[in-house]
Design a protein around this nucleic acid. Structure first.
Lengths: 229, 229
DNA sequence: ATAAAATTTTAACGGTCGTTAAAAACCGCT
DNA sequence: AGCGGTTTTTAACGACCGTTAAAATTTTAT
């Protein structure tokens, strides 16, 4: 079943594998995918290698054949999902410069929600592991979560023509992203407070309205260059 | 050491104990206090009965003598801390009606921060357990976390003379409390993003500035009765 | 076809978990 | 002093955890 090509002329014995075509990288991918699923349902400490193995349809020690430790697997998962989220975040700003604040923000939020609906796991993983034990027991790859936030702030400052002091922009983006991660990463909590279903259009509508209500005045303010208090 | 009173006339043998004076209720209290400490450092699943026993200076099975299960202990902890937080939240509004939005909000935040510094554990516990596994494995006492949010929204609506539509008030308080719980309950995360220490005056200053920046415009708006979008 | 190598499964280790049962210690009382 | 009841400790159970080692299987190369 596996593709093996011999060079016609030389008969070289080196198998030419397409990247990701051999069994090895396939199960490795399956493991990462299963891990993403499990880590989006349980925080790092509560998720277990055995859950991930079951989700991937393999025996759990096989995971240690591909990843030395649970921590290493989690770090790869974090790297993957934070990168996906970061790249997506950049794309949501495309073409927004030409628009006025209202429609710009609306479009941004629509793109954001569209992504969150199609790929809920990254946000869940981030939200689940963001608040963690202080002091000794730091979660593996925790720095990646922090740098994600920092990078998203930078993206925001580069992508929007805000004129206010850097302080205000930092506050705006931090507040905005904090709310976003909570509402979309911990939707089950906030939705049920509001008496709604986490994935219902009503809830998303509320989130959009709520975040617009919160951010739009400040956005206008900063676009005018009056970002101070 | 135990206070026992016999009714002079009948000689009844029922012991009349002052609440909290006998050894039993003392260790019970110690257990709850130790549990609050541990549950403020680790989320429900990661905290263990053994940690709590060690923190309380007792052998861990003694906990099961006072509480049938870990879940029951956690529920009592949640009931305690959410109530403390709820009552405190009410007190922060006292005398604010007479003030203009700026000084009112400033005073409210000062009271809030003062509380958070003196009693960091309730906010930590709330923040640590708010985002949790969806579906099957719900955390014991989770409903209490939700009702806390609902009750704080009601408090806000009663305590402030806001004129806007109920929707806007709900959005404002939800956003506000969400930010508060994150910034003060998960300070280690946000502070280090900003390059500050979680308990430093600088960080608290940033939080105050940031939340004022976010909320003040909307507050003015709602006090004028123009809360719609 | 056969040997070598890579992949997967099986079994098991030491450890921590929540909980239970029995023994031990402590208490107030006659 | 000795008894009855309460509180605390000790020991242990079964379950799950991450990880390791070896056996079994499958794939690759000659």
């Amino acid at each position: 079943m596996k593709k093996v090509e011999k060079t016609k002329i030389t008969g070289k014995k080196t198998a030419v594998k397409k990247a990701g075509s051999c069994r090895k990288t396939e199960t490795r991918k399956a493991i990462v995918e299963a891990a993403i699923k499990v880590f989006s349902d349980y925080p790092y400490d509560s998720a277990s290698i055995r859950m991930i193995g079951k989700e991937a349809g393999i025996e759990h020690p096989l995971i240690n054949y591909y990843f030395p430790t649970k921590a290493a697997l989690f770090e790869e998962v974090l790297e993957t999902v934070t990168d996906v989220y970061y790249q997506a975040n950049i794309s949501w700003f495309e073409g927004l410069e030409a628009l006025d604040p209202e429609t710009g923000l609306s479009l941004y939020l629509d793109r954001f929600f569209d992504f969150a609906l199609k790929h809920p796991k990254p946000l869940r993983i981030i939200a689940l592991n963001l608040v963690q034990a202080k002091g000794q027991d730091i979660i593996p790859g925790y720095l990646r979560l922090q740098s994600l936030f920092t990078k998203m702030t930078r993206t925001f400052m580069i992508a929007t023509p805000l004129q206010g002091p850097q302080n205000s922009i930092e506050m705006l983006t931090t507040n905005f992203n904090t709310l976003a991660i909570n509402y979309l990463g911990a939707g089950a909590y906030y939705a049920s407070i509001l008496g709604l279903a986490p994935d219902s259009p009503e809830y998303l509508k509320w989130v959009k309205k709520s975040m617009t209500f919160m951010v739009l005045p400040l956005l206008k303010q900063l676009l005018d260059g009056r970002g101070d208090l």
